[in-house]
């Protein structure tokens, strides 16, 4: 399995979904694409057979607006039919604007209201400990999302309950809907905050598969506390005109932009 090819295909599907719906969030889907690609294809033990069960590794997309990314990952893994993707955000589709766990097999938590997914991930990790299961829980947070107070309540409880089966990932792309996180609300510094909350903190290039693999292995080896992987990423990664531009947080490309994006991603428009 070629991770780079898979990630590229996921990026094409993300663009395709948002373009077809003329609605959705491409920027933050593209920034975390490599991490989530690795999670579904290499790290987590999810399969077609166990997708319905909670007795497996699970992923909570706390930044629920990156739903195109989750749907693309499920599709890449063979858990979601490619032809479902064109229904994204449409009235007759199960692919809601923000993911619904009861509509799509493999979606582990309904998310969308920022700051809430991480709490659910903490609950799942506590349940695994209670049941003495080795399954792990992964949770992707946005950097803008870390302006929500609930995130810190959840970090406190993750640390207090010694959830070493919980691996949090921060998609540190610096941009939120209204602009640079520095200008909007100033949620930084992250590393110091997470360390102060008692987490093991790793910093990586979120587009480097080797670094991603190494970080997940370190997180797996960590005992007695949860891990936070701060993944330095580029918002809109892979589509030149979307990169580092917050205007692409939640807007869809027009037909010209769509064609250009697909060309850059090595696909046919």
């Amino acid at each position: 399995m070629n991770l780079k090819e898979s990630a590229l295909n996921m990026r094409r599907n993300i663009i395709e979904m948002v373009y077809t719906a003329q609605s959705g969030h491409p920027g933050g889907s593209l920034s975390a694409c490599d991490i989530v690609c690795y999670l579904y294809l290499k790290e987590m033990n999810i399969t077609k057979e166990n997708a319905r069960s909670y007795k497996r590794d699970r992923f909570v997309l706390s930044k629920g607006h990156a739903s195109p990314l989750l749907y693309a990952a499920l599709c890449e893994k063979g858990l979601l039919d490619q032809k479902e993707l064109c229904g994204f955000r449409q009235i007759d589709s199960k692919l809601q604007g923000h993911p619904n766990m009861n509509y799509v097999e493999g979606v582990d938590m309904s998310t969308g209201s920022l700051g809430q997914g991480i709490s659910a991930a903490v609950g799942m990790a506590i349940a695994n400990k209670l049941d003495k299961r080795e399954d792990r829980v992964y949770c992707l947070l946005g950097d803008g999302e870390c302006e929500e107070g609930e995130v810190y309540e959840a970090l406190m409880s993750a640390s207090h309950n010694k959830l070493d089966n919980l691996c949090l990932i921060l998609d540190y792309n610096h941009l939120q809907i209204d602009g640079d996180i520095k200008d909007v609300a100033g949620p930084e510094p992250f590393k110091e905050k997470f360390e102060a909350f008692g987490l093991k903190v790793l910093e990586i290039d979120g587009h480097d598969f080797n670094a991603i693999e190494e970080a997940f292995n370190k997180a797996r080896a960590e005992k007695g506390r949860p891990t936070m992987i701060i993944a330095h990423t580029i918002k809109g990664k892979g589509v030149s005109f979307m990169e580092n531009n917050y205007a692409w947080h939640g807007s869809a490309p027009n037909s010209e932009q769509y064609e250009k994006a697909m060309q850059e991603l090595g696909g046919e428009a």
């Binding site: 997914g117 709490s119 609950g123 349940a127 209670l130 049941d131 309540e153 409880s157």
Partner: peptide
């Protein structure tokens, strides 16, 4: 005691944790 969790003065997180536990068969 092993099935009781005091989540502290943090009700928003408590409800989310409850959701995660319930999504895991509790």
């Amino acid at each position: 005691p092993e099935r009781h969790f005091n989540m502290g003065i943090a009700e928003a997180n408590m409800m989310g944790v409850a959701a995660g536990l319930a999504a895991s068969g509790k």
